[in-house]
């Protein structure tokens, strides 16, 4: 599919927003389910992009910026793979190859993030000088320069893919043999586990493992929807908190919420 001028501008705006949010982490324009859908919306290729966004979101569920560590870059992954999906013009058939392209891009995005955060150090030094003058206006200005830098981090790569154009992208996708795309689809089904593993490693304690087991077993009952499971989960949490309060002293011992400590499965895993 070839995009017209207005569509290209809109795609770049969406990319810019996704790039900003990749660091701000507030409105969540960079989450795949939103970024891919927006790209689909402005290019008129809504349904395939929506479905791509859903699948990428599943993979990226556990990706979070914790402390100074940065997770794989969902912003570049979703924006670029959605653009490639649109340019390839394969519709829903192209989703699994778009996902396979998205993952290496998430790594490349990480490098760009590191670069921009290093550049931001220079901006903060300029802010220091503005502070000497007591100038609020200059601090405001440089804060926005930094934010725009984050937006360009995604908008520029998106522009490059658009500049390469539909032809080469489609040729690339069509060269992918069937066994490769099928295999990548299977890999995509397994990759989801990595995100979950990251989150579980952060949260798991001896106290909460049973709830994981209950959730796992209840999910085999296909009639219970995700909302239903959420309701059961909230109820269990409330019941547990109420009971442990009644138990008086018993809850005091379990106050160590730090990950790692008192995590039996984690300990077993560690020992191998």
């Amino acid at each position: 599919m070839t995009l017209n001028f207005i569509q290209i501008i809109l795609v770049l705006i969406v990319s810019f927003l996704a790039g900003m949010e990749g660091i701000l982490d507030e409105f969540h324009f960079h989450q795949p389910v939103i970024a891919c859908t927006l790209i689909g919306l402005v290019t008129g290729d809504l349904t395939p992009c929506l479905m791509l966004g859903g699948q990428l979101q599943m993979i990226a569920l556990g990706w979070a910026n914790i402390g100074a560590a940065v997770a794989p870059d969902a912003a570049l992954a979703s924006v670029a793979s959605a653009i490639i999906l649109v340019l390839g013009g394969q519709g829903t058939k192209g989703i699994s190859s778009a996902i396979a392209i998205a993952v290496p891009l998430a790594v490349a995005g990480l490098l760009l993030t590191t670069l921009v955060r290093t550049l931001a150090t220079a901006i903060v030094h300029i802010m220091d000088r503005a502070a000497e003058e007591g100038s609020f206006r200059k601090i405001d200005f440089w804060q926005w320069v930094a934010i725009c830098m984050q937006g360009l981090r995604i908008a520029i790569p998106a522009g490059l893919i658009l500049a390469v154009g539909a032809g080469p992208v489609r040729a690339l996708l069509e060269q992918m043999p069937d066994w490769l795309t099928k295999g990548l689809g299977i890999g995509g089904g397994m990759v989801v586990a990595v995100g979950y593993a990251m989150v579980i490693n952060m949260m798991a304690t001896r106290e909460v493992w049973p709830f994981f087991a209950i959730g796992f077993v209840l999910a085999t009952v296909k009639e219970i929807t995700l909302i239903g499971l959420g309701a059961i989960g909230i109820s269990l949490a409330l019941i547990y908190l109420a009971l442990s309060k009644q138990g008086g002293g018993s809850s005091n011992g379990g106050s160590s919420n730090n990950s790692g400590a008192g995590d039996p499965v984690g300990d077993i895993i560690d020992n191998y």
Partner: peptide, 26 residues
Amino acid sequence: QEVTKGATILGMFILGSLVNRWVSVK
């Protein structure tokens, strides 16, 4: 602490069901 613990319980419960439903190994 209570909010954190409640969230952790809910989170682990949901993660258990997500692992079951969405990690596909066939």
